[in-house]
Simulated scan of single mutants.
Amino acid sequence: MRTNATPAPSTDPLAALGALPGVPEAVASVRKAVDRAYGHRVMRRRAIEVTAEAALRGARGSAALSGADWALEEVRRRTDFGADAEARTVGAALRLSAEAGQLLSVWRQSPLRVLARLHLVAAGGAADGGVVGRPRLAGERTDEPLVRAPLPDAAEVNGRLEGLAGLIVAGGSAPALVNAAVVHGELMALRPFGSYNGLVARTAERIVLIGSGLDPKAICPAEVGHAELGRDAYATALEGYLSGTPDGLGAWIAHCGRAVELGVRESTAVCEALQRGAA
């Protein structure tokens, strides 16, 4: 991550981001929303069902941002995800959503291994225009239409991925929302893989939110919120991250916070439907 923000004295370089404009309020608002969702009476008896539904809706939202904006019931109904590009995108999002919870224990020790695994899962083991399961090499390209910045070269990608991995392994005092937003934003900035970078980045954000303890049952799908806020808002917020300015970084983190809150709202609606017997 590149930042022009003045760091506060701390062993955690991300801790300073928690004090950027709008970030403390976003962190507090997300924590309050998540606590309300976990306090819903349905969560005491049917948390597994809420988690499963959140995974499905999160996958649908992430696929929508990547250009496959299918209705939820179509995602739920379909079994063939290899027919065309949109179907492959939805299939990749579903596989990643299912895989995320299996990688939590590895993430804190070897995040680069997890990212490689996520790309392999997204691609379904098929090359699909490039080698899977490893970052781009010199001369290899990728495409992510929601990022308007130039594509970093392979050397920069490798260096920044190593730096990001070092921060994750070291841990720190930054709030979960800040960590998740930085991981998401950095992966979108780097676009390290030959394909499916957006899907991988949003899955990594989910892993951080779950593994941090903020959302241990995975019932707050930020992907739903990102999709609801829209592709234009997502791209604009990413530009803020890429700028490295305090205001830009703060706006990106706050945007991710709003996405989590909208995910919470979605799962709260699922809880209400389950309580009424409608789902």
Rank of each mutant, 00 (worst) to 15 (best):
G198L: 08
G124P: 02
S105K: 12
W107D: 05
P21A: 10
A170S: 14
R160E: 12
T142S: 12
E156W: 12
Y234I: 04
C271G: 09
P221S: 06
T268Q: 14
P246A: 12
L118V: 02
V23A: 07
L115A: 00
G277H: 06
Y241G: 00
T89V: 10
R44I: 08
L104S: 07
S212H: 11
D153E: 13
E74H: 14
P21W: 09
A181T: 05
R160K: 10
A165R: 01
G194L: 11
P216I: 09
L190T: 10
A269L: 15
L115E: 00
V106G: 03
V131R: 12
A273F: 05
G277L: 06
I210C: 02
A8W: 00
L214P: 08
R276E: 14
E99H: 03
T142D: 05
V42M: 14
S66A: 13
T79A: 08
R36A: 14
E162S: 06
S10N: 11
A71T: 08
G166W: 01
S105Y: 11
A222F: 02
D80Q: 09
L94H: 08
A68T: 01
A149Y: 06
L137N: 07
G250Y: 09
I210T: 11
V42G: 00
G166I: 05
R45N: 15
L151W: 09
G22M: 14
I48P: 04
V208L: 05
V178I: 10
V260T: 13
L72I: 13
L56A: 09
H226Y: 12
S110Q: 14
E53F: 05
D35W: 08
E228K: 14
G171W: 13
F81L: 01
R45H: 15
G91Q: 02
A237F: 01
H119A: 07
A189H: 07
G67A: 03
E99S: 06
R36T: 14
E156H: 11
A15K: 10
A93M: 02
A227F: 03
T89W: 05
